[in-house]
């Protein structure tokens, strides 16, 4: 009813609609916000609180006395700084490698391949996601081993396998998260109208120039969107590094060993605030690029 009368009573309709929409929005938002806003954020807050407590080493019970000792340890003991820097460097490197590899593939899929080939390529990119993460990491362990596939292939060139360590960790992480970069970039490039490329060519731009001046800037938000996945997934990893990391350890390893072996939740919680802070900062920065609409 209101709607049919609308043209005559413009202003009041707008305000009433707005109010009604406000109510609807509120109703619709209540369940997801209860789940995420209250339960999930509440859990994160509880974790933060826990990091300010301490633990009794003998009984393993948490003692609820307020202390900043965990954070003092975290910032004053050198090894944690080294590990943080190392973890962030690896996460950044993995992200860059994935972006460099994903861009040409996504571009080929979106703008060159025929619809049939495109369909096959999407399947080809998605299939590895279904093979277990662990099994893939273990397959790489075999490849990196002495006399494994990599040294076997590299031997004729006088090279050898990098062995287990940070190089292997970076490669494996980049491998594991590559599809998470390809998919958003592909989706982003698909939205790029062909006419834009043609216009650029018509204006005399070389394809390399088109790529650099038109495609890349347009695809940038999608690349950033993908980077959220690759960066965050790499930063929290503790399993791949255990399988191919040799002696190396990352933030995830420290959190895990403090929970698993030492049963020290307060300190683990304190360590876990590092990736949370980094990720929040990262999200705040990339929000400006419009990447969050590209996930």
């Amino acid at each position: 009813m209101t709607d049919t009368e609308a043209p005559r009573r413009g202003t009041s309709r707008v305000s009433r609609l707005a109010r009604r929409r406000g109510v609807t929005t509120g109703l619709l938002l209540t369940p997801p916000m209860l789940w995420l806003g209250v339960a999930y954020l509440g859990a994160l807050a509880a974790l933060l609180v826990t990091s300010l407590w301490t633990q009794d080493d003998f009984t393993g019970q948490i003692q609820r006395t307020w202390t900043l000792q965990n954070f003092r340890d975290l910032f004053t003991i050198d090894v944690y700084r080294t590990i943080t820097v190392r973890t962030l460097s690896i996460a950044a490197l993995v992200t860059v490698i994935d972006a460099i590899l994903a861009f040409p593939i996504a571009l080929y899929m979106a703008k060159v391949a025929s619809p049939r080939v495109q369909r096959l390529l999407v399947i080809a990119v998605l299939m590895p996601l279904w093979a277990s993460y662990l099994v893939k990491a273990y397959a790489w362990r075999g490849m990196f081993s002495e006399g494994g596939l990599i040294s076997w292939l590299a031997a004729p060139f006088g090279l050898n396998t990098p062995g287990y360590g940070l190089v292997a960790t970076t490669i494996v992480l980049a491998y594991l998260w590559l599809p998470f970069m390809i998919l958003p970039v592909f989706a982003g490039l698909q939205r790029l109208p062909d006419s834009l490329l043609e216009a650029s060519a018509d204006l005399g731009a070389h394809s390399w120039t088109t790529l650099r001046r038109v495609v890349l800037p347009m695809a940038f938000p999608a690349l950033v969107a993908g980077s959220i996945f690759t960066f965050s997934l790499s930063m929290g990893d503790y399993i791949a590094v255990r399988i191919v990391g040799g002696t190396g350890q990352l933030i995830g390893t420290v959190v895990y060993s403090n929970i698993g072996a030492a049963n020290n939740l307060p300190f683990a919680a304190a360590v876990a605030t590092v990736p949370v802070a980094v990720m929040l900062l990262y999200l705040a920065v990339v929000r400006r690029t419009g990447a969050l609409e590209n996930l």
Binding site: Q55, I77, Y80, T82, Q249, A262
Partner: peptide, 14 residues
């Protein structure tokens, strides 16, 4: 104690 050992182990692995 074991907590000290855990911290030390993290340092050893570097």
């Amino acid at each position: 104690d074991y907590g000290d050992w855990t911290t030390a182990w993290t340092e050893i692995k570097g």
